[in-house]
């Protein structure tokens, strides 16, 4: 088995809002092996996105720790987390989050720029990836002109264009039809095998579970037994 690249130790995240508090995650410990497709599943509101955000350093847990390789993410400064995120991680958000005024290609380039990896070579790679994912004709259209599915695919390409070690994908196939969903998963698989990428994704789709190397099931912020 590959070494663990990402893990949490008893992560709890409590949201305090006006009236009371929401325990979005309750003492969750998971580990993600390198070069794996790890799937988080569970009903809506079970805490999948929250967990993903903590793993990606976008949010901090109320208690517990998260590690990237040997580095404790939860102990890093905000700037260090920014850098880590820009370099080693990629994100595909549940909400399709593209820069609305940029074209598909520019959105991908923008990710590269932030990661400090913009070069004409990478740009060509980005174009190739967009073509692969069926956006060859649309890549010079502004993001807001694209359909939901198209935007999702752009977001996916942006997520891995800068060759991160990990790609977080929050329900990446939700907006896609089955065929396209399968194609995305094929790409994921290929990225794992060819580039050694690790992918952590959330999904509802039972079909995907079959392709997963590891599945964690969440319910009400807690891990349901019988994982692994």
């Amino acid at each position: 088995m590959e070494p663990v690249i990402l893990r949490t130790e008893g992560v709890t995240r409590i949201f305090r809002s006006g009236a009371g508090e929401v325990r979005a995650l309750n003492n969750v410990s998971i580990s993600v092996p390198q070069r794996s497709l790890t799937v988080l599943r569970g009903p809506s509101g079970s805490g999948k996105t929250t967990l993903l955000n903590i793993l990606g350093g976008l949010d901090l847990p109320t208690s517990g720790r998260a590690f990237f390789q040997d580095m404790e993410i939860t102990a890093l400064s905000e700037g260090q987390r920014d850098r880590l995120r820009g370099k080693e991680m990629g994100f595909v958000f549940q909400s399709v989050a593209l820069m609305p005024d940029m074209t598909a290609l520019e959105n991908v380039e923008y990710g590269l720029r932030i990661a400090g990896m913009f070069s004409s070579n990478n740009r060509k790679m980005a174009e190739k990836s967009l073509k692969e994912i069926g956006l060859g004709k649309r890549m010079r259209h502004a993001a807001y002109e694209l359909s939901g599915g198209e935007q999702q695919r752009v977001a996916i390409v942006r997520g891995y264009a800068h060759n991160p070690k990990i790609l977080f994908a929050d329900e990446p196939t939700a907006e896609l039809d089955t065929a396209m969903g399968i194609q995305v998963l094929n790409i994921f698989k290929r990225l794992i095998s060819e580039q050694g990428l690790t992918i952590v994704m959330t999904t509802h789709d039972p079909n995907i579970l079959e392709l997963a190397d590891r599945v964690y099931t969440l319910s009400d912020g807690g891990l349901v037994d019988g994982n692994d």
């Binding site: 976008l58 905000e78 700037g79 920014d82 880590l84 995120r85 994100f91 609305p100 990710g111 932030i114």
Partner: peptide, 16 residues
């Protein structure tokens, strides 16, 4: 807000 959020999520630092 959304655009700042995206940029930050992609790793842009506050200075950016």
């Amino acid at each position: 807000t959304l655009q700042f959020g995206i940029s930050r999520a992609l790793g842009m630092r506050k200075g950016g």
